[in-house]
Simulated scan of single mutants.
Amino acid sequence: MRIEQLQHIIEINNKKSISEAAKTFFMGQPQLSHSVKNLEDELGYKIFRRNRIGMIPTCQGKEVISMAREIINSIEVLKSLSSGEANLTGNFSLILAPGVFNSFGGLLIARFHEKYPNVNLALTEDIGISIVDKVAAGACLMGVTVWNSNYDETMRKLLDQLDIAYEEIIQDDLCLIIGTHHPLAAKETISLTDIEGMTIVDYRGRYRNLLRNCGIDIAKNEFLIVSNREVMKIIIAKNQAIAVFPRFFFYNDLFFEKGLLNYRTIEKVTDENKMKMHLIYSKTEPLSYSAKQLKKILIDTIVDNCN
């Protein structure tokens, strides 16, 4: 029995798929299958069985995986005490909302790799409820998602039902995003009536209801639906449309740094509607020592760059 085999079965349990778990370890599916079979042969019983949703642990497999997590976590702590945190190893998957990914993904990877060069960190991007679903299914270790303060109670109830822990990282304003030469750029504060009749970029068709809830009469606006944030920013920078977006989605953004885009507060909306960024992870499995370090670096990276 090798430490790598314990890491293998933990990741297969997380991903519910040998092929997906193999990607984490940069190895082929046959090689990973062979590793698991050798461990099963050594133990004398099956660790996994296959059903319609993927690889599911047997009753004995659940016990093995639980013990494997404890062993790996203990080894991580011992390594941090004996030879320094830089020698910690592991494989983590983190899924971020699009704006979070663009604003903080690069900073997070750089900061985490500097401190833990031997830990593999895989970052992916997704939206809304899909992030929640993947964390609930064990497809990723943690996720960072964003919701409006009006949906606080609904989201918290949903996460509680799914046994998902949630920690608020930061909250920020909903602002008007405009090009430098847009007619509204001359105003410091925007009213709801200023926005009426304007062409609005709606990212993936997800912001129309949000605008309606903010008191904007969307019947008077034309909408451009885009599925790419870079395209959205180009349209706005060319003064062809505006957008209402959380301000923290544009931190560390070249369009803003070069003065091609600006944001303005919106009367009532800025004060009464906040966008909240949350870190989510499963309650059913305790976070390992390395995972706790990832969590701390993630939160510190976002908070430090938003202040």
Results as ranks from 00 to 15, higher is better:
residue 18 I to Y: 00
residue 31 Q to W: 10
residue 10 I to E: 03
residue 34 H to M: 14
residue 33 S to C: 11
residue 16 K to T: 03
residue 41 D to N: 14
residue 42 E to Y: 15
residue 53 I to E: 02
residue 34 H to Q: 14
residue 19 S to M: 05
residue 28 G to E: 14
residue 57 P to L: 08
residue 31 Q to E: 12
residue 52 R to C: 03
residue 52 R to H: 13
residue 24 T to D: 11
residue 20 E to I: 02
residue 33 S to V: 04
residue 12 I to F: 06
residue 21 A to V: 00
residue 39 L to D: 06
residue 23 K to V: 04
residue 41 D to F: 08
residue 16 K to C: 01
residue 13 N to G: 07
residue 52 R to L: 05
residue 12 I to L: 08
residue 19 S to L: 04
residue 34 H to Y: 14
residue 32 L to G: 00
residue 39 L to G: 04
residue 35 S to V: 07
residue 16 K to Q: 04
residue 12 I to H: 02
residue 10 I to G: 01
residue 19 S to Y: 02
residue 42 E to W: 14
residue 44 G to Q: 08
residue 37 K to M: 06
residue 32 L to C: 02
residue 55 M to L: 05
residue 33 S to Y: 13
residue 27 M to S: 11
residue 22 A to Q: 04
residue 14 N to P: 03
residue 50 R to K: 14
residue 16 K to L: 02
residue 54 G to D: 08
residue 35 S to W: 05
residue 10 I to A: 04
residue 37 K to L: 12
residue 29 Q to A: 14
residue 46 K to V: 05
residue 14 N to D: 13
residue 51 N to F: 05
residue 18 I to V: 13
residue 47 I to C: 09
residue 12 I to Y: 02
residue 54 G to R: 02
residue 26 F to E: 08
residue 45 Y to P: 06
residue 28 G to W: 10
residue 48 F to P: 00
residue 26 F to L: 11
residue 15 K to Y: 09
residue 46 K to N: 13
residue 21 A to K: 01
residue 37 K to W: 06
residue 37 K to D: 05
residue 53 I to H: 02
residue 11 E to D: 07
residue 57 P to R: 07
residue 41 D to K: 11
residue 37 K to S: 09
residue 28 G to T: 13
residue 33 S to G: 13
residue 19 S to I: 05
residue 13 N to M: 05
residue 23 K to Y: 07
residue 48 F to E: 01
residue 31 Q to D: 10
residue 10 I to M: 14
residue 35 S to D: 11
residue 44 G to P: 11
residue 30 P to I: 06
residue 39 L to F: 13
residue 17 S to K: 06
residue 21 A to D: 00
residue 42 E to F: 15
residue 38 N to D: 12
residue 34 H to N: 13
residue 13 N to Y: 11
residue 20 E to A: 12
residue 45 Y to V: 04
residue 41 D to L: 13
residue 33 S to T: 07
residue 31 Q to T: 15
residue 30 P to F: 09
residue 45 Y to Q: 10
residue 39 L to Q: 06
residue 16 K to G: 00
residue 49 R to M: 11
residue 50 R to W: 01
residue 48 F to H: 02
residue 33 S to R: 08
residue 36 V to Q: 01
residue 53 I to M: 03
residue 39 L to T: 09
residue 10 I to K: 03
residue 49 R to E: 15
residue 52 R to V: 10
residue 16 K to V: 00
residue 38 N to T: 08
residue 47 I to F: 07
residue 43 L to F: 13
residue 26 F to P: 00
residue 34 H to L: 13
residue 38 N to Y: 09
residue 46 K to G: 03
residue 55 M to E: 05
residue 10 I to W: 02
residue 16 K to N: 08
residue 38 N to Q: 15
residue 42 E to H: 15
residue 36 V to C: 06
residue 49 R to F: 05
residue 40 E to A: 12
residue 31 Q to F: 09
residue 45 Y to L: 06
residue 32 L to M: 10
residue 49 R to N: 09
residue 25 F to L: 10
residue 32 L to D: 00
residue 35 S to P: 03
